[in-house]
Design a protein around this nucleic acid. Structure first.
Lengths: 181, 181
DNA sequence: AATATATGAATGAACG
DNA sequence: CGTTCATTCATATATT
């Protein structure tokens, strides 16, 4: 039985007015469940390893949590991946790279359509894939040059990283000003 | 209507023929998520108590699990990344989505103030955040129809066994949107 | 197997 | 408002 231990996590993502969920909502739920599943199992494993006790001695609050095991242990590894990300084939990559070198940095809509059409002959691809690829390619190229040898030592400490030059839109008409603290 | 019906591998409880969930199913999901949430937090607490280490030293598999602590918002111990960029909480997102669906496409300044006031009760937020969110939401909703974000798996894997129960998207490439720049 | 890296995708913010 | 940029998230792949 799920006894609400505290008021820490209140997944209200399910509060709907109707009994209809969209694909996106279902996918969100799957992700969340999968995340919990993974972490729960990992944590349980760690706990067992640390306590060095009989593997059957689980803390009391895990008793009766059949819902957990029904969900998670049913499929080890939990292949719930709702969406696989696109992976360009070698041919596609070559074509894309060549286009990029030729100066096609940010193709417009029409250009993307053409490229997608072209690349679709060498594997499954969508316009969004092409769009994302060029965006990432450009961003990566830019970061590489400005960040040649810098090592990513940035830790999660409270180091006040200067938050970039934040530019406000000097709109004084219908644009709210930022009031963040 | 919901176009891309994805019949991918997923927990049994989510295998649906349509994108419609019954009250019971939603309730089941809520219970399961709550269970995960509770157990995860308990396990994390226990682990911290046992390891007697810095509360910030969490195992690697918890790194980057933003999905978790977004869901279990406010969970202490998880890396409190002082991110520069505003990230709406689940509740905030939910409210925003609802407002958007209700037709609040472009709220004026006054409306933004109200919304910000409302949302600020569920986390840090500024009027600019709200403004940007609606702008982005609208822009991307529009592009959504022109870019069918339906990518399949790449068939570059020649050593494929047999066609699994992959999801099949009705790639009808419906709307040849013509938006030249 | 666990960790590190590469990279596709998502999204808040900014620009013209 | 449409488009682009910058950063982050998530996962496939590589490395140890």
């Amino acid at each position: 039985t799920v006894t609400g231990s505290s008021a820490m996590a209140k997944p209200e993502l399910l509060v709907l007015q109707k009994q209809v969920m969209t694909d996106e909502q279902i996918e969100t739920l799957q992700k969340q469940i999968r995340a919990y599943s993974t972490i729960c199992n990992q944590l349980v494993e760690m706990h067992k390893a640390m306590s060095q006790q009989h593997p059957s001695s689980l803390p009391s609050f895990l008793m009766g949590q059949h819902t957990l095991y029904d969900l998670a242990s049913g499929t080890p590894g939990f292949r719930t991946s709702a969406r696989q990300r696109w992976t360009p084939s070698q041919i596609q990559l070559q074509i894309l790279e060549r286009l990029f070198e030729q100066g096609t940095a940010t193709p417009n809509k029409q250009r993307i359509k053409e490229i997608t059409m072209e690349l679709s002959q060498h594997g499954q691809i969508s316009e969004t894939n092409v769009y994302n690829w060029f965006q990432n390619r450009k961003a990566r190229a830019k970061r590489k040059q400005s960040h040649p040898q810098k090592e990513g030592e940035s830790e999660i400490e409270t180091d006040d990283e200067f938050p970039r030059e934040k530019k406000f839109k000097p709109e004084s008409d219908s644009n709210p000003q930022n009031a963040e603290s």
